[in-house]
Simulated scan of single mutants.
Amino acid sequence: MASKVESLLLAFQSVLREPWANTLSGHERVWFLVYDPAEQRKIDLNFGDFEVSAKQAGKKWLVVSLKPCFPQWMAAHKYRESYFAKPSALMTQLEVGFRQYAIDFLRTAIEAGQPDEQTLVVVRDAGALFGFVRLADVLEAVASSCRGRLLVFFPGEYSQNQYRLLDARDGWNYLARPITG
């Protein structure tokens, strides 16, 4: 019997074998690799297997980690010390300033990798945005600029065309493709 991660890898490989239509909208080119958040370490341990599978399928692999996004934004913020003293003051800045920073962070990283129609842009560490900004808002802003496919490693659940990051809230639309094990 295959483990959850092995089942997810097999489902991913199956999706990779399908032809990539260039006529899809940006939202339809987004894939969510959905797994239980408790499996995160196992996913990280086997991350290279997903890359090998993509390359064996003839796809380019471009990884963008969202883990440094918030720390870089906070470190550069001129009012960071006052936010550490009074974290509630940070709330308005998250929606206004950090949301756009996260969008620009992801967009810049994607553009730097110069992806083409055969590139799988892999977004990892999606949970790093949790509690700061909605992942759906960030992906919504960059989905149409991805020419290949945007693969989001998604610790959460998928049910009835709704994605729930870390099992907390819904966010992404039904046009994104779920990959489940």
Rank of each mutant, 00 (worst) to 15 (best):
E6I: 03
L9G: 03
L10M: 15
A11V: 07
A11K: 04
A11M: 02
F12Y: 10
V15S: 15
A21W: 00
S25G: 14
G26L: 05
E28L: 11
R29T: 08
R29Q: 15
F32T: 10
L33V: 05
L33S: 00
V34K: 03
Y35C: 08
Y35M: 06
P37G: 02
A38M: 03
Q40N: 09
R41S: 11
K42N: 15
D44S: 07
L45T: 06
A54T: 12
G58W: 10
V63Q: 13
S65Q: 04
K67H: 05
W73G: 10
M74D: 06
A75R: 11
A75P: 04
Y83A: 09
Y83Q: 09
A85N: 11
P87I: 06
A89D: 07
M91D: 04
A102K: 15
D104A: 07
R107I: 06
R107W: 00
A109N: 11
E111N: 12
A112K: 13
A112S: 11
A112Y: 01
G113Y: 03
R124L: 00
D125H: 06
D125I: 11
F132P: 09
R134C: 13
E140C: 02
A141C: 06
A141R: 07
A143D: 07
C146M: 03
L150Q: 07
F153Q: 00
P155E: 07
G156Q: 01
E157D: 15
S159G: 03
N161C: 12
L165E: 05
A168Q: 13
R169H: 08
G171V: 04
W172H: 05
N173C: 02
Y174Q: 09
L175Y: 01
I179Q: 00
